[in-house]
């Protein structure tokens, strides 16, 4: 190292004053880039839609209903969806939250894509192996391997009951997510937790939900920043193993940080007089529109339950 006599300056290693070694222009690591972009999108959804209460602030249909009513009606539909088995009934059930979303000013195409194009589709594909004649016997839908192929006497095929079972799982997953999304996007978080407390959901459960909601964005932001920091120092070729190890380390780091946060948040709450019993506010009375909404939805539920016994597949 060259030591400069002037103590005002710090002596730099020789190579730092020489021309820098530069990586040539080359394509980026696709998979991690994909992960970085996906995480950025997720945090944007949280930031711009949940936290800004973008849709919850609009005085439209679902927003004007009492939150307790919305929770109970959503639960009612979810219970019904798990009890009925007819795909037609399930499709009608799936269209109800979409209809409410439209009336509540949610962009239908985005809502449909978010709800139906990820988890329900993945659920459907994951259950496909169970829809074959190896697990569920029944009429042939279509053959994967004809009888006699590789010594398989009956061949390998999807059965109609098997595919219907996969379809039911997909529809039930979609209906659940659809109602959750509808509730979260059109209701202020404080109203949801308030309604849960007035519905006698245990305080501890509501408190944990509250803290998760507050800090999930902080943790997401932290994960995002780490991704960006790595992107900024990715100046050449990285091994796939390095990328995997980075994802593992980030997960571990976030886990440790969330524990630290939990401790600090709890201490901060105690310092401000928290005694494990959050203050309750008196819930407001139900309005006439809420009562009408309850009865109309109960009618829909009864109609679908009755239709279930009439329809046969």
């Amino acid at each position: 190292m060259s030591v400069k006599p002037d103590t005002k300056y710090i002596s730099l290693p020789d190579w730092m004053t020489e021309p820098a070694i530069r990586a040539p222009a080359q394509p980026s690591a696709g998979k991690l880039n994909f992960l970085r972009k996906t995480m950025k999108k997720i945090s944007q959804v949280f930031e711009n839609e949940f936290f800004c209460e973008k849709y919850a602030a609009r005085p439209l249909f679902w927003q004007n209903i009492d939150t307790r009513v919305k929770i109970i009606i959503s639960l009612l539909f979810l219970i019904l969806s798990s009890l009925v088995s007819n795909p037609v009934t399930l499709v009608i059930l799936a269209s109800i939250p979409l209809f409410y979303a439209k009336l509540s000013g949610l962009p239908l195409r985005v809502h449909f894509r978010r709800v139906w194009l990820y988890i329900p589709l993945v659920s459907f594909f994951l259950t496909l192996p169970a829809a074959t004649n190896l697990f569920v016997q029944g009429k042939v839908m279509f053959y994967l391997f004809q009888p006699g192929f590789q010594g398989m006497k009956d061949g390998l095929y999807f059965t109609i009951p098997g595919l219907l079972a996969s379809l039911r799982i997909m529809l039930r997953a979609g209906i659940s997510i659809s109602f959750c999304f509808l509730l979260l996007l059109t209701t202020r978080w404080s109203q949801i937790t308030g309604a849960l407390m007035s519905l006698r959901v245990p305080v501890l459960f509501v408190s944990i939900m509250n803290m998760t909601y507050r800090y999930i964005f902080v943790l997401l932001l932290m994960a995002n920043n780490r991704m960006e920091a790595r992107f900024l120092r990715t100046v050449g070729k990285l091994k796939a193993a390095d990328n995997r190890s980075f994802v593992g380390q980030t997960t571990a780091h976030l886990f440790i940080r969330s524990q630290d946060y939990a401790d600090e948040v709890y201490d901060a709450m105690c310092c401000r007089g928290y005694s494990r019993e959050p203050a309750r506010t008196k819930p407001p009375h139900l309005q006439r529109t809420d009562i009408i909404f309850i009865f109309s939805n109960i009618l829909i539920v009864l109609f679908l339950a009755a239709g279930e016994s009439v329809l046969h597949v």
Binding site: A20, R22, A23, P24, S28, R226, A229, V235, F246
Partner: peptide
């Protein structure tokens, strides 16, 4: 930028985050 120039660019432009904690990601 993301597809081709990012690596070359980032070797010329160094960025130090406000919160150093998020910048350090190795063990």
């Amino acid at each position: 930028f993301a597809d081709t120039y990012a690596k070359e660019y980032h070797s010329k432009v160094g960025y130090i985050f406000q919160d150093s904690d998020v910048q350090l990601f190795c063990s």
